[in-house]
Structure formats: C-alpha cells, structure tokens
Design a protein around this nucleic acid. Sequence first.
DNA 1: TATTGTTATACTCTATAACTATA
DNA 2: TATAGTTATAGAGTATAACAATA
Lengths: 125, 125
Amino acid sequence: MLRRAANAMMGELAIRLAQSDLRITDATILMLVEGRDDLTASNIGRVLDVQRANMVPILARLEERGLIDRKPLDGKSQAVVLTAQGGKVAARARDTVENFEGELLQRIPAEHRDHLLPALSALVE
Amino acid sequence: MLRRAANAMMGELAIRLAQSDLRITDATILMLVEGRDDLTASNIGRVLDVQRANMVPILARLEERGLIDRKPLDGKSQAVVLTAQGGKVAARARDTVENFEGELLQRIPAEHRDHLLPALSALVE
DNA sequence: TATTGTTATACTCTATAACTATA
DNA sequence: TATAGTTATAGAGTATAACAATA
C-alpha cells in the first residue's frame, strides 16, 4: 500500500508539475534553494538522495532554462541559486505542491488524517 | 514524506528479498500466483502496473530459474503457475514480506499505528 | 475487433568508477 | 585526507510501436 500510494500520488503530482514543465525532482530542487544561497550541488544531492554525479544533468537542464545560476562559495564549491525567473517558477511549483498536499489530506477520512504524517515520519527514521 | 517513506522501505525490503535472490517485483509475482492457476502474464501486468511487454523478461528470468511454469488456458493465453521450487521460494518471500511489515508497524508509535493503512488506502482510491 | 504474447527500441533514472582541483 | 564538480558508462525500469496468432 505504501508503494502503491506513493506511486499513484507521485504520478498525479508529476502531471500537475508538467504544466510548469517541471519534473518532481526539478520542483523539489527549486523549492529547496528558494530563499537560500548556500546550497551546493553535492549538498542538494545528499538531501534528495541523488548521487552528486547525477545532479549534473539535472542542474544543467535547470540552468539552460535560466531558472538557476551558480554563485562561487570558495575556489571549489559553488552555491545553486534561483534566478528571477527561477524564483517565479519556484513559487508556482510551491503552490502546486501545497495545493496538491491539501487535496490529498482531504481524501483521507478525518479520523485518520492527522496520523499519516507522524506515521510516515516514524518509518523514515 | 510519502515518497521518502516508500523509497526507504522498498530499499530495505529489497535487501531482505535479495537474500532469496528476488527483486520486489519477482516476489510480488510469486506471491500473486501462489495458489492460483488462472493468471496470465497480461493479467499480472495489469495488477502490478507493468506493461505486458515488460513482463516478458521478468517472467523469463523466473522461468529460467525454475520458479514458474506456463499452463495453456486456450490457444493463445497461458497461465503463470508456480513450480514446486517456486512454491517454496514464494512461501519464503511471503514470510520475509510479512515479517518486514510487522517490524515496520512496530516502528510507528502506537497511537498512529492503526491509522496508516486506512489513510494510505484512502489515498489510492 | 480486441487481446495475448512477443520483439525491438528508446528514454529516464540510478549506481559506480575515475579524474582534477581545492578544502 | 576528504570533498566538489565532472565525465563516462553500465544497469535497471519503463514506455511505445509493431507484429502474428487467437478470442
């Protein structure tokens, strides 16, 4: 059920985010760097469970579209930061995701609703 | 959280099933045809959300290992059935999965435990 | 006409190893 | 020594189109 629910929900979310030409990982990255200027590619990869080697094409795509930029932190690290356009897209993505989450919670009978997140959190630890 | 929980749990389950040389999809198929002799490859694919074209290599692998066999249903359809050895492996897989599920539920605080499955079920519908 | 089983193929995602340069 | 960024590559998983044969 966990797998099926996650697959079904991610599928639905993917369709909604596709209207902003974003994949789920893209949207997650944009939302993660929103309002920050100190997160490196390796850093983001660790949070999202994506190997840093696999971050390269993902970030390259976002950079090509003018959504993100790089800001040197020192001689070897660089922060991933949103461009002005990236900020707009990130805000729209956040709206999409939060609306979707709200809808999902509404699908759950009231007596179970508040238990889902705590239960899932306990599993992840 | 839904995605992270599902990924983390499927990862753990994959490690345990690997000790029986099974992937999650393999185990799911074996458990699905356990005690039945009327499920075709297309049939299983629809249940598991796997295109029938992609069922071919999966079933071929299980057949090579002597875990499943084919039983003609009519001139064009054939049922996937367990061999004697397949029955043993299926039973072990079921044990592994059920033990794991029990452990997962134990990780959830008692007050949330009984709400997870109903909440997930509501999401899938 | 629709479905089964199959082949072939392409695309995405992921994992690993290796390399350079810097901390 | 460890880490950042990158390249190259291999393996899964998945999606699509097409075909012959049968329902």
